[in-house]
Simulated assay, not measured.
Amino acid sequence: MFRQFANQVAAAGTTAAPTAIAPTLRSDIYTAIDQVKAWVIGGMGQAGDGMSYGSVLATIQKHFPDTKMGLENMGSAENEVSVVVCGVTNMILEMSKWEGMAGGMTMRTWSDGLVEAHGRLPAGSRKNGIAKGIVRGISQNTDISLMTKEFTAKIQIISSLKSVCSRIYGAGSADARQAEAVLSSRLI
């Protein structure tokens, strides 16, 4: 009798892990990538305005409902970009658990999109803040435990993430080396 009760209590306390990829995850990722690129460039609001991230955040929250902007992040381009970039990166890492190589290719598309959007910004403090937000979202906030265990796909994803740092800050720059070191320390 005690064993049955203990098993019921243990079963009630665990949540079952998903057994398949969410059916809309892939399309939501590509929707989010397009939304983020337009948002960073300034096509649909502007990063740092405190409200235009809503549609991107809603797309992320379909798969990670606990993702929130938080009052401390609102109104700062760097902080808003960090949260959004982290959310989309986590979505891609989640997809890589189910489809390793597709996750690697999607991560390449995502990293290219981030670098392209950053490159289209005019020079200034806003561009620097967005660069810091992108790199922080990737190197510090991303949940690395979501990444695939497939060796080839994992290497491709890590390479894509590291390339964002060097492509945004410039290869060999102190900022790029520091961001890559932080990312590497989290991956080991």
Rank of each mutant, 00 (worst) to 15 (best):
F2R: 09
Q8E: 13
V9W: 06
V9K: 08
V9T: 06
T14I: 02
A17F: 05
T24A: 14
R26E: 15
R26P: 02
R26I: 09
D28P: 05
D28V: 02
D28S: 12
I29S: 01
A32P: 05
I33G: 03
I33Q: 13
Q35S: 11
V36S: 08
A38K: 14
I41W: 09
G42W: 06
G45Q: 09
Y53L: 04
V56P: 04
L57T: 01
I60V: 15
K62E: 14
F64Y: 04
K68Q: 15
K68G: 14
L71H: 12
L71F: 14
E72Q: 14
N73Y: 12
E78Y: 04
S82T: 10
V85S: 08
C86T: 10
G87I: 04
V88T: 09
T89H: 02
I92C: 07
M95E: 15
K97V: 02
E99V: 01
E99M: 08
G103H: 04
G103Y: 03
G104H: 03
T106H: 02
T106N: 05
R108Q: 12
W110Q: 01
S111G: 03
S111L: 00
L114C: 03
V115H: 08
V115Q: 09
L121K: 13
G124K: 12
R126K: 15
G129L: 06
I130R: 02
I134R: 00
G137S: 09
G137K: 06
N141H: 11
D143W: 04
D143Y: 07
S145P: 06
S145V: 02
S145C: 02
S145R: 13
M147A: 12
K149V: 03
I157N: 08
I157E: 06
I158E: 14
S160W: 01
K162Q: 15
S163Q: 13
R167V: 00
R167S: 15
A171N: 13
A171E: 15
A176K: 03
A176H: 09
A181E: 12
L183W: 06
L183T: 07
S185D: 12
S185Q: 11
